[in-house]
Design a protein around this nucleic acid. Sequence first.
DNA 1: GTCCAGGGCCTAC
DNA 2: GTAGGCCATGGA
Length: 211
Amino acid sequence: MNELFSLYEQLLKHYGKQNWWPADNREEVIIGAILTQNTNWSNVIRALDNLKQENLCTLNKLSQQPAETIAPLIKSAGYYNVKAARLKNIAEQLKDWSPENLPIQEARAFLLNLKGIGNETADSILLYAYQIPVFVIDAYTVRLLGRVKRVPTDNRYEYYQNYFMDGLPLDHSLYNEYHALIVKHCKAFCRVKPICRDCPLNKSCISKILE
DNA sequence: GTCCAGGGCCTAC
DNA sequence: GTAGGCCATGGA
């Protein structure tokens, strides 16, 4: 088994299953994916709760609301004016959209064409809302891999994504869990330098596995 | 008071 | 093509 899968197994053994994405249904995953941009998840939960309380936590309902109505409800998630306008538009575009029968790249391109959806959010939606096997690269993953693999600054997202997807089987549940485990691990041990200080994986730490 | 969080867009060089 | 500014709240 290759080093990437070995790393996955160690993270899983240490942290257990993360059961992402924490949401009740597909539409809530999509809404949460927009709300969580550059924002702590605990702040997103409040915003989602507010939307649920107003019975607005569906794409159809959000698409029918003026952004001015949405904004105060999602204030806790930060950037609320920007996110309110984007949510409304994205809800309108995605409420009747289904990517299941599309080539992955086509589905991805459709999402990337929407204002407010970049690489990470597009892949999060494909993976966590639709169970389509794309590996999500986020700031944590970049930070982690950046310490052990030198890469060109351009196309960095693609480079890292290919790195994972070339080394792993095409499996949405594996990508789901792996990404969540990386976030879990980095939150605890890869926030600050020095690298992986007090890392519980110790001798089998990520830096040593991937170097 | 400062830093960071499950980003992305836009503008100026 | 890319660096920098901007959007903004809440917890540590």
